[in-house]
Write a protein that binds this DNA or RNA. Structure first.
Length: 437
RNA sequence: CGGGAAGUAGCGCAGUCUGGUAGCGCAUCACACUGGGGGUGUGGGGGUCGCAGGUUCAAAUCCUGUCUUCCCGACCA
């Protein structure tokens, strides 16, 4: 993409409403603009990041055996009356009426709707286990939206729902998601620790929050430093194999959020206890028949008798992750994107656009990168070099390639790693190969 | 929902106390210079001061109401 033809409105100064790093940087880097409190437009570069996160989430869900569908944002109130949550949910639910004065709502979550879909179509235990998910916008009318996309009212969420015949099978479904989450967050370039969580209004027995560690996190967390030795990328996905040992390993060490932490009963020595701050980016629940029973989501078992299915739900805050990743990875100059979610892999800068040879060479490198399938943002604007460097640091692409008259003379470009700040000179003819091998 | 702060040009702000023709920086436009870390100069454009009432000869400024946004707390798959 040529920057001169792109839509990347960056800001030198921080808008007054933004207080925390990720919010400031997302506004300054031209990723988002606010529509109303907690409601945002995703500008092109932000949208690219969102899609990258979404795709990684999707790949790992698919690998874990979950099946994607897409439910609507607007739901009828009827199902919620049936589950009893229409009254329970309170003002956080955005309630609306259609032209026939039918009660509708903008979905804050989808347990009711997925349960309804399930009960209509699935009648036999032979169709289980089943895990259905979608990635869809939610709306929760938070009392106090804040921190940009980290606590928005409208937000993008992946929510999966598992259906099993019995508890034993449901635990396997839970474990598959547990492992998928470990892998997902690792691939997104963040460190997430599963912590036993309060099941809250969802109810049920088993629940874990996945917390990304970041100094600016919303909640205080406590965990065993033994987690340092764990490698989530070594965890293999799968639905058939027994994932219990992996889950056991990851749940064997102490980890708790503020509200669950009790220093007196914590199963960790003071020496091994790490205190930090974190951002909740995922939450998984096993809640049994909480919805299937009142909503009569039943299947016939091998004996021919109807039993309510055992359910679980599994959420990942996709849009929140965009903010969480920045909180965990930035410096004074701007964002530092992990390569897996960066809007572009390479930022190519023509430092001396008036120099015909330099411009010809930059154009050629740009074409070559495009042909090689390298995602490149080419700063071909007629601005000064300083502005280009500052802008590139701000938007945080993993690799910067700078070429000016000086480089032309010596036959080299400057390659900079945004994360480490490390710079090296690379022969002009060799630079494209650096990104394709 | 309790407490606090703020709405003046796209962004950051001054002006409000003490009423009298709406300002600065950045951005933007034109031209020239410059070209390896947000460069320099000259000249432009852009605001019914959140909105609605009121007081006054006169309101960004004083009064009343209202909307919006942000912060702290409570809340929070």
């Amino acid at each position: 993409m040529r920057l001169s033809r792109y839509f990347l409105p960056t800001l030198k100064e921080t808008p007054a409403e933004a207080q925390i790093a990720s919010h400031r940087l997302m506004l300054r880097a031209g990723m988002i603009r606010q529509g109303a409190a907690g409601i945002y437009t995703w500008l092109p570069i932000g949208h690219r990041v969102l899609q990258k996160i979404e795709n990684i989430v999707r790949e790992e869900q698919n690998k874990a055996g979950a099946i994607e569908l897409l439910m609507p944002t607007i739901q009828s109130a009827d199902l919620w009356v049936e589950s009893g949550r229409y009254d329970d949910y309170g003002k956080e639910m955005l309630r609306i009426e259609d032209r026939h004065e039918r009660k509708m709502l903008f979905g804050p979550t989808n347990e009711e709707m997925i349960t309804d879909i399930f009960r209509r179509e699935v009648k036999s235990y032979k169709d289980l286990p089943l895990n259905l998910y979608h990635i869809q916008w939610k709306f929760r009318d938070e009392i106090r939206p804040r921190f940009g996309v980290m606590r928005g009212r409208e937000f993008l969420m992946k929510d999966a729902y598992s259906f099993d015949l019995d508890t034993e099978s449901a635990v396997r479904s839970y474990n598959a998601m547990f492992v998928a989450y470990l892998r997902t967050f690792a691939r997104l370039g963040v460190r997430a620790i599963p912590m036993r969580a309060d099941t809250g209004p969802i109810g049920g027995d088993l629940s874990h929050e996945f917390i990304v560690l970041a100094e600016t996190g919303e909640s205080e967390v406590f965990f065993d430093k033994g987690f340092d030795a764990f490698d989530p990328l070594a965890v293999q996905p799968g639905t058939d194999e027994d994932l219990q040992p992996t889950v056991d390993q990851w749940t064997s060490l102490y980890a708790a959020t503020d509200e669950m932490h009790n220093p007196d009963t914590a199963s960790v020595s003071e020496n091994d206890l790490v205190r930090g701050r974190g951002i909740e980016v995922g939450h998984i629940f096993l809640f049994g028949d909480k919805y299937s029973k009142p909503m009569k989501a039943e299947v016939q078992d091998a004996n021919g008798s109807s039993v309510p299915v055992q359910m679980g739900s599994y959420g990942i805050g996709v849009s929140r992750l965009a903010g969480a990743i920045i909180e965990a990875s930035h410096d004074e100059a701007g964002i530092i994107w992990p390569e897996s979610v960066a809007p572009f892999k390479v930022g190519l800068m023509n430092l001396t656009p008036k120099d015909a040879e330099c411009t010809t060479t930059c154009d050629r490198l740009y074409s070559q990168m495009q042909e090689a399938g390298v995602e490149v943002l080419y700063d071909d604007r007629a601005t000064g070099a300083g502005a280009k460097f500052a802008n590139m640091d701000l938007i945080g692409l993993p690799w910067q390639v700078a070429l000016g008259s000086r480089g032309i003379k010596n036959g080299v470009v400057e390659l900079k790693n945004r994360a480490t700040g490390e710079r090296q000179e690379v022969a002009i003819d060799a630079i494209v190969g650096k990104f394709t091998s």
